[in-house]
Simulated scan of single mutants.
Amino acid sequence: MMRGNRNMGNMMKQMKKMEKQLAEEQKIMESKTYTGTSPDELVKATFTGKREMTDLTIDPKAIDPDDPDMLSDLIMAAVNAALKQIDDEGKQTLGKYTNNLPGM
């Protein structure tokens, strides 16, 4: 009976340690910036790790009054590229803690 309590105590310590490491890595990731660019690099979108856009740069060559849809497409491509970077880093960095947890 005592051995089971000790094992449970060790498991709880490990979980608390993992939780602390996860929080630290998440904080580091959230403090980084991620920049996505459109395929031709005419549009750049910068986000924090918290998915907040902090900058959007549009090259004047991307602004064609006769084709506003092109600019929309370039902006979407840049935004999606930046968000993918955040997702990929999250899976790589935080996944090592959450992949083995039930329901994650």
Rank of each mutant, 00 (worst) to 15 (best):
I63R: 03
K61S: 12
P39Y: 06
E89G: 02
Q26C: 10
I63P: 05
T37A: 14
M76Y: 10
I63Q: 09
I75A: 08
L83K: 10
P60C: 03
L71V: 03
E24C: 09
S38L: 03
Y34K: 06
I86P: 00
K91Y: 10
I28H: 12
D73P: 02
M29E: 11
N80T: 11
T46C: 08
D88N: 11
D55G: 14
P65Y: 03
K84T: 12
M29K: 11
P60K: 12
D55R: 13
M70S: 09
T46K: 12
Q26H: 10
V43Q: 00
K32H: 13
K91T: 11
P39A: 10
I75G: 04
D88V: 05
V79S: 13
T35D: 03
T33V: 14
S38T: 04
E24N: 11
M70F: 07
D67Y: 04
K27G: 08
P68M: 09
K50M: 13
K32E: 15
D59A: 06
G49I: 08
D88F: 04
A82T: 00
P68W: 07
E41G: 11
D55H: 12
I86G: 00
Q26V: 05
E30A: 15
D73M: 09
M29C: 09
A78F: 00
A81W: 00
K91L: 12
P60D: 14
D40L: 09
E24P: 05
R51S: 15
T35K: 06
S31C: 06
V43P: 00
G90R: 06
D73V: 05
K32P: 01
V79C: 12
M76N: 14
K50L: 11
S38D: 04
K84G: 09
N80L: 07
K44F: 10
I86N: 00
D67G: 04
G36S: 07
A78E: 01
G49C: 07
D73N: 10
L42Y: 02
I86K: 02
D73W: 01
Y34A: 00
K32F: 07
I63S: 08
L56M: 14
D59I: 07
V79Q: 13
P39W: 05
E89S: 04
T37I: 09
L42Q: 06
I58H: 02
T57C: 10
T33I: 15
D87H: 13
M53L: 15
F47R: 01
K84R: 12
S38Y: 01
M29L: 15
I58E: 00
T48N: 01
T33Y: 11
I28G: 08
L42W: 02
K44I: 03
E25M: 12
